[in-house]
Design a protein around this nucleic acid. Structure first.
Lengths: 239, 239
DNA sequence: AGTAGAGTTTCGTTGAACAATCCTGCAAGG
DNA sequence: CCTTGCAGGATTGTTCAACGAAACTCTACT
């Protein structure tokens, strides 16, 4: 019975098929809107009109509403009864909340990694750091931000926990919402190109505990920087 | 301008209104199904037929599907394209995954609580422990399980983090799914009536660090117990 | 035995319709 | 001048009926 061997590649094939199957109309609509939101084309506070989107996307209202529901549960939209869906405006409490959970999860992942480090598993992290450095060199700070997010997603993936990955994906998506509310992406992302590299070096050296400690300070600094950036933007009169 | 003062009670009023607004049809349908699933009336593996439920619940298919979507994102249903929605069957990998994230979050909450303990904030925990002891005394092990879940939810709530609360709610809901897959609820829940009380005592004494340590062992034991219970059930030939 | 195909069932999506709610602007009153 | 009350229009919430598409089942064939 050669079909029951279940070698590694069979699982990956199954995953790929699942990716293809994932193409229900509402999920594809959600993909489009998700990109628009995370890329910053739809700014926080914007209302998404059903009528308007139905006309543009060429889907029925029911399908669109199902896409709304998907994004709402990812935290990328908020739904107000009889008033419609909006791109959420996160306040300072939300921002510290995001960082709190982020620090909990990411640091715990690194701490639980004691000795389980493997060269090939760090490959995605190498790629992300390189992508960040390359983007920084050409001054594309939005791309730096994207590479940074991917770095942290891959960092968490080292734990091999499906639910942790999902929670992290949601956290990082919401975080991008906040990033779009600040003026200078450079100030926000540039320092972490270097720190990501340092973090990765610690992991390569097998010092998971040291990496966890460094990540704790890293996120602490990042939070302070973000809060400060948003505050100064508000103070300068921008809405 | 007396209306812009924004005193404390205005915020609570806003919250109450939001609670009232929550009564859309799809959410009420979701409430009904959620109860059925968490109480164990709908066993893992069951398929929920749209046609059938539409007839029973007297709602339209679209509304029912929106309720499905809600529960899917809570982890209480899984959606397979063109095949329908099912009560998920969690495997052993899921079970250890659940406990991994649970341990991360709950322990971190306690650790971050250093010195911030307040008598009134522990009130819900007292109530839950009492409810568990009372239910145990009369042998109602399902009620013990419910009180136990509420205890942990309230424990996490001490951190005051909205997102942490949400993640925990999802985790505990999924956990109940697993509980229904074992034969003896007593063996699963009884030991923790006492341990919840011990945990609460540590918190009352202000020993957050000690409580975090105890909780770590607590969850470790609970996980081992659960895995063992499910394994023995499978070994005994039950499906 | 294993496979190919037709038929049945169920889901995915659409479009239209009506009810309920919200928002806007204007008029009346303090 | 500001607040309050009341249309009217605009938008969302919910339902219904229908058709195409995918998955499952069972039979018949090689």
């Amino acid at each position: 019975m050669a079909t029951t061997d279940d070698p590694a590649w069979l699982r990956t094939v199954a995953d790929e098929v699942r990716q293809l199957d994932r193409s229900s109309t509402s999920e594809r609509v959600a993909d489009v809107l998700r990109r628009r939101i995370t890329e910053g084309d739809l700014r926080p506070g914007t209302r998404l009109s059903e009528e308007q989107l139905v006309a543009v996307l060429r889907v029925s209202r029911n399908t669109l509403r199902e896409a709304f529901r998907l994004l709402t549960h990812e935290g990328l939209l908020v739904h107000l009864l009889h008033r419609g869906v909006f791109v959420p405006e996160l306040d300072e409490a939300d921002r510290v909340d995001l960082y709190r959970l982020r620090r909990t999860i990411e640091c715990d992942v690194l701490r639980s990694l004691q000795g389980k480090l493997d060269a090939v598993r760090l490959r995605p992290l190498h790629d992300d750091v390189a992508a960040g450095e390359s983007a920084a060199a050409r001054g594309d700070w939005v791309a730096v931000g994207t590479a940074n997010m991917r770095f942290h997603q891959h960092l968490v993936a080292l734990a091999g926990s499906r639910r942790t990955d999902e929670v992290t994906a949601r956290l990082l998506a919401e975080l991008r919402l906040v990033f779009h509310a600040v003026a200078s992406p450079q100030r926000l992302h540039e320092p972490y190109v270097r720190r990501n590299r340092a973090l990765l070096d610690l992991l390569v050296a097998g010092d998971a505990e040291g990496a966890a400690k460094e990540l704790g300070e890293y996120l602490h600094d990042s939070e302070a920087e973000l809060l400060d950036a948003v505050r100064s933007r508000h103070a300068s009169g921008a809405r």
